[in-house]
Design a protein around this nucleic acid. Structure first.
Lengths: 153, 153
DNA sequence: CCAAGTAGTTGGTGCCGCGTACTACATTGG
DNA sequence: CCAATGTAGTACGCGGCACCAACTACTTGG
């Protein structure tokens, strides 16, 4: 239901989207593996690239339980990618931020993601690429309300 | 790098594809969760829907190590979704197949995936849907040689 | 000030994936 | 035929990831 469907027969829309999602995820996963990063770790770094955040905030962005954050951040911290600091305004809270090492790795991995995902579209003309982007944006738009995982603020 | 990127600014192609992949994966994951199925379990069932297979064969389709299959199939077997049978032609081999329960669940989940993924495209016209499908197929085509995860036979 | 709420951690459970090591059967070539 | 080699599968240990329930420590509203 997800991995198969005729490889050289015309795909229906459902199969196309599902398989495309696996294709992209596999690219991300393979790329992350080269830096010993899981997809969830990359997502964590990606959020922290733009702003520091507390544990609950991160959990919300990532769609995880807050208790899952302890281990996730802990492992990143142990690798020196991330740092915990006490929040100045709230004694309970913690502010997670990238270390310089973490930032370097994040920038680098981000650039590689750009390259690899772009490579997936190499057979598309610029106009097709733009159209694909537009269509994807429509799908993403349609679910922003149900899917609070790609928001700023 | 994966979860963010401006929510209401124009997306570039890379962000669009990455975010779309997360959108679809989240839909799959949520749907699976309703039946206590992980994505990998659904993929397993999806393969077995069309044909029985040995452990190594399944591992190849799923891109996993064969040792990972023991647990995966074992858990599905314990739930009564799947059955192991000794291969008639090779005393070492095992043939994994769906039980009637497993087949019912597979058909049902497959149908729901169709519905939900189709729902993601509700804002597209039929022509746009077809175009999206075509474009996705081009991306998928370009990597078949590197990605032996969507083949029959 | 105190009750209720919030941020975060801990501990336990289970799934998933890997690498290594092992058993059992199959195949091949001398 | 049989020894060497190859292949299918399992077992075990490890670590990452995610959940839930329970807990601590702090903050806030009345």
């Amino acid at each position: 239901m997800t991995t198969d469907a005729a490889a050289d027969r015309p795909l229906d829309t459902v199969d196309a989207l599902v398989q495309l999602s696996f294709l992209v995820q596999r690219a991300l996963s393979a790329l992350g593996a080269e830096h010993e990063l899981s997809i969830i770790q990359m997502r964590l770094l990606g959020i922290l690239r733009d702003r520091d955040a507390g544990m609950v905030e991160l959990a919300t962005y990532l769609g995880l339980d807050k208790s899952s954050m302890t281990g996730l951040v802990g492992r990143a911290e142990k690798r020196g990618l991330v740092r915990r600091a006490r929040s100045p305004h709230d004694g309970r809270a913690v502010l997670v931020s990238l270390t310089p090492d973490g930032r370097r790795l994040t920038e680098r991995a981000g650039a590689e993601i750009g390259r690899r995902v772009t490579a997936l579209t190499e057979r598309l003309s610029p106009a097709e690429r733009a159209e694909l982007t537009r269509l994807a944006a429509v799908l993403l738009d349609g679910t922003v309300s149900q899917a609070p995982w790609a928001r700023r603020r």
